[in-house]
Computed example of a mutant assay.
Amino acid sequence: MRQDPYIKKMLFPEEALLREIDRQPRLSIGLACENPRIETRLALTPEGVSIVVEEGHTVLVERGAGLPMSYTDLQYSEAGAVIVDSKAEVFGADIVLKITPPTLEELALMKNGKSIFSMLQLSYLSAESIKLMMSKKLNAIAYELIKDSQKAFPVVNTIAEIEGSTAIAVASELMSNAAGGKGILLGGIAGISPTEILILGAGLAGSVAARNALALGAQVKIFDHDVNKLRKIQHYLGQQVFTSVIHPSVLFKALTTADAVIGNLRYINDSEPFMVAEELVKTMKPGAIIIDLSVDQGGCFETSTCRTIDDPTFEKYGVIHYCVPNISARVARTGSMALSNIFAPMLLKIGNSGNVKQAILESSGFRNGVYVYGGILVNRLIASFFGLKADDIGLFLTGY
């Protein structure tokens, strides 16, 4: 009589586990150095590497990759990673994990048919990069588009929490004399009118920013396309705040009195495009601050221009603009830990599936993050942005 595999594991747990791990395909995963002018985070911390390596997979880390977030090569090595000096070794892995989209030089190092994971920062991605992915028959997965079992976007939500808190910290810093601001304290004290914070977008980042600003004593106004989101943010904050759908005359009045405006309207996932016109920016107070959290998707302001974390600000019409596509890179260690908590379990699931293509077939949420599949562009929004043609991924999945 054939013995039940579960009973077999119960009788010989260690031996059964070792045999099961031994049968699983091994993945090689590459972590490359990011350009420190643009990005300081990594997708896996040493703790995340340890979880992946314990399952029999290999993690290749480029020497010095963790230094911007204060992790040493020794910490990665002790976690089980292989430290390499060559980018070619990292990009030769089955799966390459990046934060910024890959450059043409990086893609050229990848082997045909392998997989690249990264953020979908449209300001850094190019049509040429997508075409090279297609010619090398790569799989490209955008972190922001991946859904979990609850149909939520885990990476977007995690980063949004960090961005919301960081945006208020940046606004406070830019208002100070030390940063060339007007010398205003973000918040309020007795006898002085409170700072006025205007938030465009009632998503998670906007909600966290509003909560932090209110805690400091600021006056907060929130605008969004969706009245249901405005209702939810009222409930989240646990108090009445000024909320409004985006009505031109109401927004115009709010912009003229705001000390800081935080733009947080996203387009790639679910929002219709919206942009504050240059003429409206001109009406803002001298020394007011704009923080555009959506600059990587075109921005919320006509005056926004994508900058880098080592040169994040510029002034136009007397308004200070902070426009970087990755404000959470200012707190690289926190951001990396949050991302690692998502990606380590995800890599184990891919390992259990056997490879990336099988994982795409098995998980609709993971499949949602794919924009190039085996060299075929399968995301219509991205295709439209770059003037390319996209196909339906379902046409290429066996048994889909």
Rank of each mutant, 00 (worst) to 15 (best):
R2I: 02
R2N: 11
M10D: 06
L11Q: 13
F12Q: 15
P13Y: 07
P25E: 06
L31E: 03
A32M: 02
A32L: 09
P36T: 13
I38G: 00
R41I: 05
L44M: 05
E47V: 00
T58L: 11
L67H: 05
L67S: 09
T72S: 15
L74K: 11
V82D: 03
I83P: 02
I83W: 08
I83D: 02
D85Q: 05
K87T: 02
L97N: 04
E105S: 15
F117L: 14
F117K: 10
M119R: 12
S123I: 04
L125V: 01
A127L: 07
E128R: 12
L132S: 05
A140M: 05
Y143K: 07
E144H: 04
L145D: 05
K147I: 00
Q150I: 00
V155P: 06
N157I: 00
I162W: 07
T166R: 14
T166A: 14
T166L: 13
A167H: 02
E173G: 03
M175Y: 02
S176N: 10
S176G: 09
A179T: 00
G180L: 11
L185H: 04
G191C: 01
T195M: 06
E196V: 04
E196N: 13
I199M: 08
L204I: 13
V208R: 14
A213C: 10
A218D: 07
I222K: 07
H225M: 13
V227I: 15
K232E: 12
G238E: 06
T243I: 14
I246E: 12
S249K: 11
K253T: 03
A254I: 00
L255C: 03
A260S: 08
L265E: 05
Y267K: 14
I268F: 10
E272M: 14
M275D: 03
V276H: 11
I289N: 02
D292T: 03
G298Y: 07
G298V: 04
C300P: 02
F301D: 05
F301Y: 05
E302F: 08
T305F: 11
E315C: 11
G318E: 02
Y322C: 08
V324G: 03
N326M: 06
G335V: 00
N341W: 00
L347R: 08
L347W: 07
K349T: 04
A359C: 09
V370C: 06
Y373L: 02
A383R: 13
F385C: 07
K389T: 13
D392L: 14
L395D: 15
